[in-house]
């Protein structure tokens, strides 16, 4: 007996399995760490090497600068490229993008709330499914098709102009378009158009987390608030909104981040003034200034880093 145990220290009550698969299965059972390692290795290698690797390679480039005369990247660490980022036009681009992202986030939160609240509180059974799919289908339908639809809508000869004309309100549209900054030749080449499309495309990302947060608000809290004499408005401000806030903040992470990095929407619908995404694209493509493009792409990462830290404090991650 002793000899047997010494000879096969691992043998337990059952005999080991025969064959390669059996032996392998036994090995996994005896060494859970081995199994864990084998399970984690492929995804970690993939994400670690391909994704994080190239991300770091990109970020490193931002510490190089382009030589003004030869136009060649000189590989000496410098902060000059970051200095360029904070001058005139480039700073304008950053501020413009952040302002747009903030406005889009705010507007989506306002439009999303009634939908989320109705779906969370009043919709039952089939209506619930209807609301869920009503948000999911636009969320998942093609990004470019959605932008294309808005190109059709906002075109000068399109449906918006037609509606205003039918209502004899063309002068209102003209007045809006003649506004100094947000206006333009037609809606499809104005900031207003860019803004509308951003709100449209990212709105579902705001609805879903808001609805999830509202569904966790116990109904009796609202009843209690009413019983204690609060008006609906007070209940909303002091009970509902604070409890829904983590969900709204979670949604705002998406709307803010997605607006910050997008370069296709402002390129197709908007004025010729650039956003961060377009600047990155132009710098690495036609301008061939990869260090500046890399520095530009650090901006959304830093902004989102700050944003996420604040959001974490507000409990947004529990609402995702």
């Amino acid at each position: 007996m002793t000899a047997l145990t010494v000879g096969k220290p691992h043998s337990s009550i059952l005999a080991g399995r025969g064959g390669f698969a059996g032996a392998l299965s036994d090995a996994f059972w005896r060494h859970p760490k081995l199994l864990l390692l084998l399970m984690l290795a492929p995804p970690l290698l993939w994400l670690g090497i391909i994704y994080v690797g190239s991300l770091l390679a990109l970020l490193m480039q931002s510490f190089f600068a382009i030589d003004d005369f030869s136009g060649v990247v000189s590989y000496e660490p410098t902060l000059a490229t970051y200095g360029q980022l904070l001058t005139g036009t480039n700073l304008d681009i950053i501020l413009r993008t952040v302002l747009m992202a903030a406005l889009v986030t705010l507007t989506s939160a306002i439009i999303a709330f009634p939908i989320a609240y109705y779906a969370a509180r009043y919709a039952k059974g089939r209506w619930k499914a209807f609301f869920y799919l009503g948000v999911m289908l636009p969320l998942w339908s093609s990004y470019l098709v959605k932008i294309y639809a808005w190109k059709l809508i906002l075109a000068k000869e399109g449906i918006v102009t037609w509606i205003f004309a039918k209502l004899n309100l063309s002068f209102v549209l003209d007045a809006i378009l003649s506004l100094p900054v947000v206006g333009g030749n037609s809606l499809s080449v104005s900031y207003l158009g860019t803004f509308l499309v951003f709100v449209y495309v990212w709105l579902p990302y705001m609805i879903l987390p808001t609805q999830a947060a509202l569904e966790r608000v116990p109904r009796n809290l609202i009843e209690a608030s009413a019983d204690l004499g609060a008006t609906p408005r007070q209940t909303f401000r002091t009970v509902l909104l604070p409890l829904a806030l983590p969900g709204i903040v979670a949604g705002s992470i998406f709307t803010f981040s997605l607006t910050l990095g997008d370069y296709i929407i402002p390129q197709i619908i908007g004025s010729s003034r650039l956003f961060i995404g377009q600047a990155v694209y132009a710098q690495q493509g036609t301008a061939g200034n990869v260090p500046l493009a890399a520095a530009f792409s650090v901006v959304p990462i830093v902004i989102m880093g700050i944003y996420l830290t604040v959001a974490k404090r507000l409990g947004a991650f529990d609402a995702l």
Partner: peptide
């Protein structure tokens, strides 16, 4: 976090990072 990162960061960053790699 590592798994979520590719969609949490703007797509343009993923794209340009891969391209430069």
């Amino acid at each position: 976090l590592l798994v979520i990162l590719p969609i949490a960061l703007p797509g343009i960053i993923t794209g340009i990072a891969l391209r430069s790699a």
